[in-house]
Design a protein around this nucleic acid. Sequence first.
DNA 1: AATTGAGTTCAAATAGATTTGAACAAAGAG
DNA 2: CTCTTTGTTCAAATCTATTTGAACTCAATT
Lengths: 166, 166
Amino acid sequence: MADGDRSEKALSDFESQVIEFFCDGVKILGLPKSIGEIYGLLFISPDPISLDDLVCRLGISKGSASQGLRTLRELGAVREAEVTSGRRVYYEPDVELKRLVGGFIKEQVRPHLSSGEEKLDSLKKMVGDMPGDVRSDFYAGRLERLSRWSSRAKVVLPLLQKFLGS
Amino acid sequence: MADGDRSEKALSDFESQVIEFFCDGVKILGLPKSIGEIYGLLFISPDPISLDDLVCRLGISKGSASQGLRTLRELGAVREAEVTSGRRVYYEPDVELKRLVGGFIKEQVRPHLSSGEEKLDSLKKMVGDMPGDVRSDFYAGRLERLSRWSSRAKVVLPLLQKFLGS
DNA sequence: AATTGAGTTCAAATAGATTTGAACAAAGAG
DNA sequence: CTCTTTGTTCAAATCTATTTGAACTCAATT
């Protein structure tokens, strides 16, 4: 193995393009580029990777790598490998679409949905306290519609996960 | 009607909160806040609204309002009303969840999916040109997995729209 | 107990996206 | 034809989010 085995090497053209692919992907989800870089390198690496590897190979700061890994762990997109050579921790990606989507929904979507429902309730209360005229009827109707949107979402999300489970 | 009919009034507390609600919403979708403000005001207004109304009531610039309306029209989230008193154009929201989601998928999601597939193909070609060793087999496997993700998405998106259609 | 190595935190710097505003087009009205 | 009204465009300003880097914690090692 000439020099292709230690992870300190610069990124190959192939690796860079895979990483770029994931950067595009996470941008759609509204996550920062570094998340895409980290997950992308993990995804395309045959062996688990440590934080220092990420720093060296991607050329990002330790801070970025640390925070990015944290987010990815919270999303369930990355987990520790049991390689543990010494004290250093190595990571590997979770590559099951079902779980990636599930984690994203749980961490990024559901919280917004719930806080949205609370706000909706408070809005409904405001309309309830209004003098009952034509306009407040209109308002009530619109809020009712929002409620329906929200329950649709609550039905569809689990269904979505089910379909992605293969 | 005391003074509640002309649209120049400042936003009521109720209106502000509805608009804030939509700002939160569009943020999740990765769209700018002004889009949420504009759609929010349209959504909660009993009557169609002109660009100038948006500028006055939301306190945003004409440029913002113009670009925001353009984006919303492209998404199919807003359409011209046929009120057309004089030359001024009035807008009203499309409030069907199915169509809103459909427009978003068509305009924001599908383009990314297709460009992603192109990049995937080019990556597969790179792997095909590699010397056939253990690593290139691993790479091929991972790219295969990405292809599966992509086809899943292509199946799920129309299904999603169907479910939201009531 | 002091030192070294791994990882985290967070304030400041940077990069990236949105918003503004002024100049510009297009389309009646006079 | 000129003036006014409506709306668009785009470079510059502003704002927001991400990244950095240095200080710090914690744990293992000597």
